[in-house]
Write a protein that binds this DNA or RNA. Sequence first.
DNA 1: GACGCACCATGACAATTGTCAGCGGGAGGG
DNA 2: CCCTCCCGCTGACAATTGTCATGGTGCGTC
Lengths: 202, 202
Amino acid sequence: MTIRLLLAEDQELVRTALCALLDLEDDFEVVAAVGRGDQVAEAAREHRPDVALLDIEMPGLDGLAAAAVLAQRAPRCRVVILTTFGRAGYLRRAMEAGAVGFVVKDAPAEVLADAIRRVSAGERVVDPELAAATLAAGTSPLTARERDVLNASRPGAGVAEIAAKLYLSEGTVRNYFSSAIAKTGTRNRTEALRVADERGWL
Amino acid sequence: MTIRLLLAEDQELVRTALCALLDLEDDFEVVAAVGRGDQVAEAAREHRPDVALLDIEMPGLDGLAAAAVLAQRAPRCRVVILTTFGRAGYLRRAMEAGAVGFVVKDAPAEVLADAIRRVSAGERVVDPELAAATLAAGTSPLTARERDVLNASRPGAGVAEIAAKLYLSEGTVRNYFSSAIAKTGTRNRTEALRVADERGWL
DNA sequence: GACGCACCATGACAATTGTCAGCGGGAGGG
DNA sequence: CCCTCCCGCTGACAATTGTCATGGTGCGTC
């Protein structure tokens, strides 16, 4: 019984290479390979894969959002998130989005193959080390608005731009920064943004 | 006549996958695959590859530095830089490091195969679009010290830490920031860092 | 209904950051 | 030799940023 795979990965070379790798396994068949998150649902509808391998960083729709869409529109298709970096918060969000597997790209090939087989058999597969890190990072203490402000400050924007974009007073924006800085235990926005990002508190 | 390849890429899954992909071509033979930049020279000495495919982001030694080492220690081995993102400045630095080819990871597989063949035949291979962007970005107007200061501010460090790390006065650090901000046409450090980074002015 | 909490805002204050002018030294180039 | 440019420093100033106290709203919960 062969397992039908959908592969979503934006870098074409990597996508092609993963196809080649997965095709080496007798019991795998890559039935669709797409380069954008917003092509995942369409491809799944058309090719009915058993397992979808989704990268997180993708244009159009990120892998997490794509996973959520799949969970709703193609519940028979198991989702495995395949990502570059084991960001602690990614795992939580992946699980919330309905993924049942999570593999980092610097794992050996056998781990991926194994994960695919176990997931298609109904198991959940998560790197235990990463799971521990996720639990350790805890749930986000940031309030919705604090997240908004941090996100809006990404390209290095000043208070004025952020306030305008979010229809807030400048003082309010600075207050949110202040509390975010306190909650991350840092000393300025830049660091607060970095830390919150690393912890997956975005 | 088969082309002997050395592959350096830190993410094991991607490395394995690229191996599988390259092995599909009859005239390629992957003779070595390593996961760290500082293993490149050793592997080249031992396996005498015709072409080395080097990722840029790697632990130990980055691909650019590894290319420089190869150019010196194994001049018969042509270097192709294979990188995730077509950062404008990467190309210049790759060429300075002695690379003769430059391929981005979201190119199609044929482009990579073609690049390898042409490079091994003595040609130089560069994505023309990227070359144009590199020329457009021009050469860095930043002074060595300005670069140092920007680099030191990466994790969101404050003036005090940077001054300490570089044995400079705090005022001096702020002056360098100021001129960097002016030269990048931005309004604060964060933005200046981002822009300088994007332009490859690191 | 009292309570906690997120939300939005002020105003005031201190600390940090960005800008500017100027000083001296050393390296290179005409 | 003079000129330019990078280096490093200082001091002063304005702007931005971080902190704190305070106050009002609405929501959900006990």
